[in-house]
Simulated assay, not measured.
Amino acid sequence: MKFGIVIPLKSKKISRDWAVTSAALEGTIRSIQNQTDQNFVVSVAGHDCPEFFKNMLNERFRFTKVDYDAPDRNAPNFKTQELINDKVLKIMTGLIAIKDEPLSWIYQLDSDDLIRNDFIEQINIVPPTDAIIVEGGYIYYQSAQRIIETNEMDQLCGSVVVVKPSTFSFPPSADLQYIHDLPWTKYRHMNIYKFFENNNQSYTRSSENLVTYLLATGDNFSDRWRTGLVSQIKAVMKPYLFGKKYLILLNLNFH
Results as ranks from 00 to 15, higher is better:
Thr129Glu: 08
Leu95Arg: 03
Glu101Cys: 13
Ser169His: 10
Leu9Tyr: 01
Lys65Tyr: 04
Tyr140Ile: 08
Asn85Leu: 02
Trp184Cys: 13
Ile29Tyr: 02
Tyr140Thr: 12
Gly4Thr: 04
Thr21Tyr: 07
Leu229Glu: 14
Phe168Asn: 04
Val211Tyr: 08
Glu26Tyr: 05
Ile147Phe: 10
Leu250Gly: 06
His255Tyr: 11
Ile84Val: 13
Arg146Val: 13
Phe61Ser: 05
Phe170Arg: 03
Ala235Cys: 05
Ser169Gly: 02
Glu152Gly: 11
Asn199Met: 00
Tyr213Trp: 15
Asp223His: 10
Asn124Lys: 06
Phe119Met: 07
Met153Ser: 02
Val236Ala: 03
Lys2Cys: 02
Arg30Tyr: 10
Asn77Trp: 11
Glu135Pro: 04
Ile233His: 00
Lys90Val: 12
Val163Trp: 03
Ser159Met: 11
Arg16Pro: 00
Ser206Gln: 06
Met190Glu: 07
Val44Asp: 00
His255Val: 00
Phe195Asp: 03
Asp48Leu: 05
Thr204Pro: 02
Phe40Thr: 04
Ala131Cys: 09
Met190Gln: 11
Glu51Gly: 11
Val134Ile: 15
Arg30Asp: 12
Val126Gln: 09
Ile125Ala: 05
Ile106Val: 11
His189Cys: 04
Asn34Lys: 08
Ile106Ser: 09
Asp154Glu: 08
Gly137Gln: 12
Asn85Gly: 04
Val230Thr: 07
Tyr187Glu: 13
Met92Tyr: 03
Trp18Met: 14
Glu101Lys: 11
Tyr213His: 14
Gln38Val: 01
Asp86Val: 07
Ile133Phe: 05
Ala131Gln: 13
Val88Met: 00
Met153Glu: 03
Leu249Ile: 00
Ser104Gly: 12
Tyr187His: 07
Ser11Glu: 01
Thr129Arg: 08
Gln155Cys: 10
Ala23Leu: 13
Gln201Trp: 09
Leu114Cys: 06
Val126Ala: 09
Phe195Pro: 05
Trp184Arg: 03
Lys245Tyr: 07
Trp18Ser: 09
Tyr193Thr: 01
Ile192Arg: 04
Leu182Glu: 06
Lys2Met: 09
Pro172Met: 08
Gln177Asn: 09
Ala216His: 15
Glu82Ala: 06
Ser15Trp: 04
Ile132Pro: 07
Leu250Pro: 02
Lys99Cys: 01
Arg205Leu: 10
Pro183Tyr: 14
Gly137Arg: 06
Ala45Gln: 01
Ser43His: 09
Leu252Asn: 09
Val41Phe: 08
Ser173Ala: 15
Phe3Leu: 01
Phe61Tyr: 12
Ile32Trp: 03
Leu210His: 14
Asp69Trp: 04
Thr167His: 05
Tyr193Pro: 00
Thr80Ala: 08
Ala97Asn: 14
Leu229Ile: 15
Ser143Asp: 10
Arg116Cys: 01
Asn191Gln: 02
Lys234Val: 04
Asn253Cys: 06
